[in-house]
Amino acid sequence: MGGSSLNKPTLVINGKRTDGRDFNELRKIKITAAPLENASGSAYLEWGNNKILAAVYGPREVNPRHLADSTKAILKCRYAMAPFSSLSEHGRSGPNRRATEISKVVKEVFENAILLSEFPGSQIEIYIEILQGDGGTRAAGITAAAVALATSGIQMRDLPYAVSVGKIGEDLALDFNMIEDNYSDSDVPMAISPRNNEVLLLQMDGHMTKEEMSKAIDMAIDAGKIISAEQRRALKELYELRGESNHLKGE
């Protein structure tokens, strides 16, 4: 963030963004539910050029055992970028400070969404692997992980989605890609519970007035309708036979 002014590319041409989008337009999102067999639940997501796998294991026995909570499940979460995920050089493997922080705030999103008291004394693990990153990976990862959790059958209050809003010049713009992310001054990733619009993840840095922050939240909630719809489509698709209508086959 807050990258250099050196060789700063033009981010808006004729009122459109570099990839032709409007300011309030999402990139294309496609989710495939349950692509992995071994995991209790999984999802594969393509969001613009982001390619992300999310998987869930558990509820299973807590390891190490002394961490077990007899009243609820404990949650573990790992967000990680693959060493080959970025256009720049080979990344170091293992979590860096950024990934550690993201893993923590993502975990807190799902501590809210999952009904942990349904599984006392157990552990649930969420893995988010960024195979290819193009800006907004934490938002995309959360969106995928929510679908993975649903396919695992783990009880949840809601299916959270996430998206980021940034600022290009004086204008707010939805869903930054990597170039916009690198050369803009503000970025606000958010995760939201669609049933009541409660904000479960909110991070921001840059320069925004409070009015712009309020508008950013509204833009995220608006975009959430499209993201939620794709999450639902991916889940329902699992249970539809090829060539059949959206309704289940009648007896």
Partner: peptide
Amino acid sequence: MLIDFMQREIVVPGDVI
């Protein structure tokens, strides 16, 4: 058994029942 299959639907966590 007579069931109106239109009344059966797939729901996800957070859907209003």
